[in-house]
Simulated scan of single mutants.
Amino acid sequence: MAKQKYRTLDDGTVIPINEGGGAKVFVAGVAIVAAVGGGTAAGVGGAASVGSGAAEALPGNLAGDVADSLPGRSLKTRKAEAKKSAQRGRKDETFSRFKLKQLKQAAKHEIDCLLNSTDRVREYLAQHRCTSLDRNLFAVGDGHGNAAVISVARVGFPKKSDAEGCEKVEEVQGSGDIKPLAATLLRLADVTFSGHHFQSKVDGKTMVVAETETVAGHLDSDTLDALADVSVLFPKL
Rank of each mutant, 00 (worst) to 15 (best):
V155W: 06
G174T: 04
T212D: 01
A63W: 09
T223I: 10
D177K: 10
K205R: 08
D92R: 06
V172A: 09
P235E: 14
S117E: 08
G29R: 13
T223R: 03
A228E: 07
G141W: 12
V14P: 06
A35H: 05
E171F: 04
L237S: 07
G46Q: 08
N146G: 09
E123P: 04
N136W: 00
H144N: 10
P16W: 12
K160Y: 06
D142Q: 04
V140G: 03
L181P: 06
D119T: 11
A28Y: 09
D177P: 06
L137C: 00
L70C: 11
A210W: 02
L224A: 02
V155A: 15
E93V: 13
P180S: 04
K236H: 15
L237W: 03
E171I: 14
C113T: 09
V33K: 12
S221H: 12
A55N: 07
I111Q: 15
D162A: 10
K99V: 08
R135N: 03
E170Y: 02
E110G: 04
E110D: 03
G204H: 10
D220M: 05
D190V: 14
Q102S: 07
E167Q: 11
V121S: 01
L181R: 06
A23M: 10
G37D: 06
S117H: 03
N116E: 11
V36S: 07
G12Y: 12
H196M: 12
H109D: 07
P16M: 11
Q127I: 02
G51T: 00
D65K: 15
L114R: 08
M1E: 11
D92F: 01
D119R: 14
A183R: 05
L224G: 03
